[in-house]
Each structure stands twice: as structure tokens, then as C-alpha cells.
């Protein structure tokens, strides 16, 4: 074999290698810049507005806000109607989605190879990707038009429950898959009835995994605005009737944003919402991290 003249390109390649590392670090830092800026901006602008009445009073109307502003006073009121509305809607959604999600997840775990299970799994995957605004549209057609005949907390809950359902199904199945099969076999060998195996073995031994899935799905739906605009509309007062229009924290932010007199209130309510969602997120990650060590 003839010797092939090889040009020494090591200098330029080593330089390129270093430049590339620089680029990677630069873009990685650029990626986390927004989260730092966003959190920083909300904290700086929002923290001063948070006080006791923020949690106990309903949102002001635009006139109250305008008068307060004209007199140089702080805008009165809080976001209690939003907080109570969010609690009502999310709890209702969770009550609807969690049992069915867990039941379906257990079913998928118990019948892994079946064609029907594969179809259910594919549907759950597709449903997970459906834009939330489309869910709002559909639930408007179902609940607002035919069941409550008005915008309602129930309608909002149904749309959020549809968001939660596939998340719970998949997280339940994935969690159950991680349980050692011997655990179940031991129970079966002892002649324990099937429903008791589920209630006494499967669910308790996968509890932290299920909880993580539930918390993550709740943190996903808590910040949702778009479907609620089409289903619960909003309410200036605290409302606990699920057939009536109801406010929610993200809806209030949207309302404040669109009202020049109240626009200053967006920062505190956004800070509150984001803080809540991120805390839930972090708690669920902690639980799942602990879980995976064992």
C-alpha cells in the first residue's frame, strides 16, 4: 500500500473542538436565561402586592381599581374568587380523572399484550397531545350547551379532567410496571382475591409513583387558561356552585391583563400561580426521586 500523505490538521481540529464546547455552553446558558428572567421579574414586580387581602378578598372591579389609581392608593381586593374557583375546578377534575385513570392504568398493566390494550394506550397518547383549546371547544359543545346551559365550573372541570386522564393512565401503568412481579405472584400463590391484590398489593406498593403522576398532572392543569376561557368564563365573586360561571387564577390574570385599570395586578397573581405550580412540580420530582432510589 502506498503511503498516503496526511496533512497535520490537529491544530485546527483541536481549535474547532474547543469552539464547539464554547457554543454548547453558551446555548445551554441561553436556555436557562428565560427561566431566571421570568422568575426574577415576577418576584420583583409581584411580591410587594401580596398581602392578607390578596388571599381573602375577591378581585376588584374596574371602577374600584380606577378610583384607587386616581387617588394614588393601592388597588384594593385580592384574588380569592380565583383561588376558590381554581380549587373547585381542579378538585372536581381530579375526582373525575383519578379513579378512571388508575382503573384504566391497572387494566393496561394487567393485559399488556392485548390488541384492545394497545388501542387504549395509543388513544391515551393521542389524547395527551390534543391542544387544550380544542378540549375547551369540545367541552363547550358537551357541557355548556347541553348540561349546565351556561358557562360553569363543571364544564371547566370536565375539560381539565380530559387533560388529566391520559397522564394518569400512563403514569399508573408505568409505575405498576416497576413493581417486581414476584410481589404479585406471592399474593396470587396465597390465594388472595384479585381485587384485594389490587387494593392491598399493587396500589400500596406503587403509591409514591401514583402520587407523583397525580401531582404532575395537577400542576399541568393548574396553569391552564385557554380551555377555561371557553368553559367557565369567569366570575367576579366567589362561587361554589358547579353549574355557575366561576373564576380561576389564570382566568383572573387574563382579565387583569386585558383591563388597563387592573393591569398592575397581573404580577402578584402570576407570581402566586407560578410559585404554586413550580412548587408542586418540585415536590413531585422529589417524591419520584426518592421512589426510584429504592
Amino acid at each position: 500500500m502506498k503511503a498516503i500523505a496526511i496533512r497535520d490538521n490537529s491544530n485546527s481540529r483541536n481549535t474547532k473542538n474547543k469552539i464547539f464546547l464554547g457554543i454548547v455552553i453558551f446555548f445551554s446558558l441561553l436556555t436557562i436565561l428565560p427561566i431566571i428572567l421570568i422568575v426574577g421579574e415576577l418576584v420583583v414586580k409581584g411580591i410587594g402586592q401580596i398581602n392578607l387581602s390578596f388571599f381573602t378578598e375577591a378581585a376588584p372591579d374596574t371602577l374600584q381599581a380606577m378610583v384607587a389609581k386616581a387617588n394614588g392608593e393601592t388597588i384594593p381586593g385580592g384574588i380569592a374568587n380565583g383561588i376558590t374557583g381554581s380549587i373547585l375546578i381542579v378538585v372536581l377534575a381530579a375526582v373525575m380523572a383519578i379513579p378512571f385513570g388508575i382503573i384504566t392504568g391497572i387494566y393496561l398493566y394487567e393485559t399488556p399484550g392485548k390488541r384492545y390494550s394497545n388501542i387504549i394506550r395509543d388513544i391515551a397518547d393521542i389524547l395527551q397531545g390534543v391542544p387544550s383549546i380544542v378540549l375547551g371547544l369540545i367541552v363547550y359543545l358537551w357541557v355548556v350547551k347541553y348540561i349546565t346551559h351556561s358557562y360553569s365550573a363543571l364544564a371547566g372541570s370536565v375539560s381539565l379532567a380530559i387533560m388529566m386522564l391520559p397522564l394518569i393512565i400512563r403514569s399508573t401503568e408505568e409505575t405498576l410496571k416497576m413493581i417486581p412481579g414476584t410481589l404479585k405472584e406471592a399474593a396470587v400463590a396465597l390465594g388472595v382475591p384479585y381485587h384485594k391484590i389490587i387494593l392491598r398489593v399493587l396500589i400500596p406498593s406503587s403509591f409514591s409513583g401514583l402520587l407523583t403522576g397525580i401531582l404532575i398532572s395537577i400542576s399541568r392543569i393548574l396553569g391552564e387558561t385557554a380551555p377555561l376561557m371557553l368553559t367557565t368564563l369567569g366570575n367576579p365573586r366567589i362561587n361554589w356552585d358547579i353549574t355557575h360561571p366561576t373564576s380561576a387564577v389564570p382566568l383572573l390574570i387574563w382579565q387583569f391583563y386585558n383591563d388597563p385599570n387592573m393591569v398592575e395586578l397581573i404580577w402578584s397573581s402570576s407570581l402566586f400561580l407560578m410559585g404554586f405550580v413550580l412548587t408542586l412540580n418540585i415536590i413531585s420530582k422529589r417524591i419520584s426521586a426518592k421512589h426510584s432510589i429504592h
Partner: peptide, 12 residues
């Protein structure tokens, strides 16, 4: 290593 070879060189 970014060394370009002629087709004949490669085959050889």
C-alpha cells in the same frame, strides 16, 4: 480525522 481520500485510495 477529516482526511479526504480519492476513491482509488479508499478502495485500496
Amino acid at each position: 480525522n477529516g482526511i479526504r481520500l480519492k476513491k482509488s485510495e479508499r478502495e485500496e
